[in-house]
Computed example of a mutant assay.
Amino acid sequence: MRERQAFQGARRAREFEAFVAGAAGRLLHAATLLTAEPPHDNPRARRLLTAALAHTYAIWDRLRGEDPYDRAREQLAVRFARGAWHQYGGLGWAHPRGRPNTGGVLRHLTPQERLILVLRMYEGVGEEQTAALLGLPLERVRAICARAMATALHPPREPAPTVAKVAPS
């Protein structure tokens, strides 16, 4: 009995390692887009990915034909949404637009806009599935995605740098 459990445990570990080898890079990139962190300095994205993969490993035996990538992506989205809720006070998720970071054009988006845009455009998740995952009406997902796309394509201008005046001597 123990030999059988050990064999199954080893098989489970090998299967999960193969999954992580194939999916972790793309999931990390999605997490980095969500957090709007620079790719070379993304501790929040790495924590999100680690938690999502840990959850996926915990339910690995119960997947029964489900796509583990879908489950890991779902966990990534849910954990990001939960974190944004706590950090920004809700999924309307207002935050100071243009906060200082180097997250590219996505830094101009609210966390909710980033989440929907990443799920829809980067991950290719359908509108209906995105709406169901986030518990939002389909029309709301459409509107947020359109607004996020417009902002990403035409980001607000950065304020002009201030020039220090030199006192005449």
Score class of each variant (00 low, 15 high):
residue 2 R to Q: 14
residue 3 E to R: 11
residue 3 E to Y: 04
residue 4 R to F: 12
residue 6 A to E: 15
residue 8 Q to L: 15
residue 9 G to M: 05
residue 10 A to I: 09
residue 10 A to P: 00
residue 13 A to D: 11
residue 13 A to N: 03
residue 13 A to L: 11
residue 15 E to H: 08
residue 17 E to L: 12
residue 17 E to F: 03
residue 19 F to T: 05
residue 19 F to R: 04
residue 21 A to R: 15
residue 21 A to D: 14
residue 21 A to L: 14
residue 21 A to E: 14
residue 22 G to W: 01
residue 22 G to Y: 01
residue 22 G to T: 02
residue 22 G to S: 07
residue 22 G to D: 08
residue 23 A to G: 06
residue 23 A to E: 15
residue 23 A to K: 10
residue 24 A to C: 05
residue 25 G to D: 11
residue 25 G to K: 02
residue 27 L to H: 05
residue 29 H to W: 12
residue 30 A to N: 02
residue 31 A to R: 04
residue 32 T to E: 05
residue 32 T to H: 04
residue 32 T to M: 06
residue 32 T to D: 05
residue 33 L to G: 02
residue 33 L to D: 02
residue 36 A to F: 00
residue 36 A to S: 13
residue 38 P to I: 00
residue 38 P to M: 03
residue 39 P to R: 12
residue 42 N to C: 15
residue 43 P to Q: 08
residue 44 R to H: 13
residue 45 A to T: 02
residue 52 A to R: 07
residue 53 L to H: 02
residue 55 H to L: 08
residue 57 Y to W: 14
residue 57 Y to I: 00
residue 61 D to F: 02
residue 61 D to T: 14
residue 61 D to K: 12
residue 63 L to F: 04
residue 63 L to Y: 06
residue 65 G to L: 07
residue 67 D to F: 08
residue 68 P to G: 07
residue 69 Y to K: 00
residue 69 Y to A: 13
residue 70 D to Q: 15
residue 71 R to I: 15
residue 72 A to D: 05
residue 76 L to T: 07
residue 76 L to G: 06
residue 77 A to G: 00
residue 78 V to M: 10
residue 80 F to A: 01
residue 81 A to W: 02
residue 82 R to W: 10
residue 82 R to S: 12
residue 83 G to N: 10
residue 84 A to I: 03
residue 84 A to C: 08
residue 84 A to V: 04
residue 85 W to I: 03
residue 85 W to Q: 11
residue 86 H to I: 05
residue 88 Y to P: 02
residue 89 G to M: 10
residue 89 G to D: 09
residue 90 G to W: 12
residue 90 G to Q: 13
residue 91 L to D: 05
residue 93 W to G: 15
residue 97 R to D: 09
residue 99 R to E: 15
residue 101 N to K: 09
residue 102 T to Y: 11
residue 103 G to M: 11
residue 106 L to W: 10
residue 106 L to R: 13
residue 107 R to A: 12
residue 107 R to W: 09
residue 108 H to G: 07
residue 109 L to T: 09
residue 109 L to C: 10
residue 112 Q to F: 09
residue 114 R to E: 10
residue 115 L to F: 07
residue 117 L to P: 00
residue 117 L to F: 13
residue 117 L to M: 06
residue 118 V to T: 14
residue 118 V to A: 03
residue 119 L to A: 07
residue 120 R to D: 06
residue 121 M to N: 08
residue 123 E to V: 04
residue 124 G to D: 11
residue 125 V to T: 12
residue 132 A to N: 13
residue 132 A to P: 00
residue 132 A to F: 07
residue 132 A to T: 14
residue 133 L to F: 03
residue 133 L to V: 07
residue 133 L to Q: 13
residue 134 L to E: 07
residue 136 L to H: 08
residue 137 P to T: 04
residue 139 E to K: 12
residue 141 V to R: 03
residue 143 A to W: 03
residue 144 I to D: 03
residue 144 I to L: 15
residue 147 R to F: 01
residue 147 R to Y: 00
residue 148 A to I: 09
residue 149 M to C: 03
residue 151 T to G: 01
residue 152 A to R: 13
residue 156 P to D: 08
residue 156 P to E: 10
residue 156 P to T: 09
residue 157 R to I: 00
residue 159 P to H: 03
residue 159 P to S: 04
residue 160 A to R: 14
residue 160 A to Y: 04
residue 161 P to L: 15
residue 162 T to D: 10
residue 162 T to W: 12
residue 162 T to F: 12
residue 163 V to D: 03
residue 166 V to H: 02
residue 166 V to C: 00
residue 166 V to M: 04
residue 167 A to T: 13
residue 167 A to W: 14
residue 168 P to G: 08
residue 169 S to R: 15
residue 169 S to K: 10
residue 169 S to I: 09
